[in-house]
């Protein structure tokens, strides 16, 4: 599923992202960054309701492609700049976490995470 398709399915605004046609292979939804860091995912998207720069850094450490902020959470300019520097696309949707995850899952984007180690 491409970042563009994720945006369309979630009626999301694209806040940054140069290439929206890259293929996302897995996803996770969490407000707890250490839980995100525990699971290895490839070419992943992160759905979260947490807004602080550590969300972008966590995504960067995990080589994630995309961060989706749910329930109308809006990231700061600093966070968007950080994401741009790291080549991470940032989207924002008014949908809630459960609904956003469900829509993506039902459309074929599975978790595919493995606990590392």
């Amino acid at each position: 599923m491409t970042i563009r398709e994720i945006g369309d399915l979630l009626d999301a605004r694209v806040l940054c992202g140069k290439d929206l046609d890259v293929d996302v292979k897995s996803a996770c939804g969490s407000d707890m960054m250490s839980d995100v860091l525990a699971f290895v995912k490839h070419r992943a998207a992160l759905l979260t309701g947490l807004v602080n720069p550590q969300v972008i850094r966590t995504a960067e450490m995990m080589d994630m492609l995309c961060v989706v902020f749910v329930r109308d959470k809006t990231p700061t300019i600093d966070m968007i700049e950080l994401a741009e520097e790291s080549g991470i696309a940032v989207l924002a949707t008014s949908k809630r976490m459960y609904e956003a995850c469900g829509i993506l899952y039902a459309n074929g984007l599975k978790g595919n995470g493995e606990l590392h180690g």
Binding site: M32, M33, S34, N52, V55, L115, G117
Partner: peptide, 18 residues
């Protein structure tokens, strides 16, 4: 710290895991 997305008691276990 928990409201910032950390402090769930996963830090050291994650460090060992990786």
């Amino acid at each position: 710290v928990r409201s910032l997305g950390f402090g769930a008691g996963m830090g050291l276990p994650n460090m060992k895991r990786y």
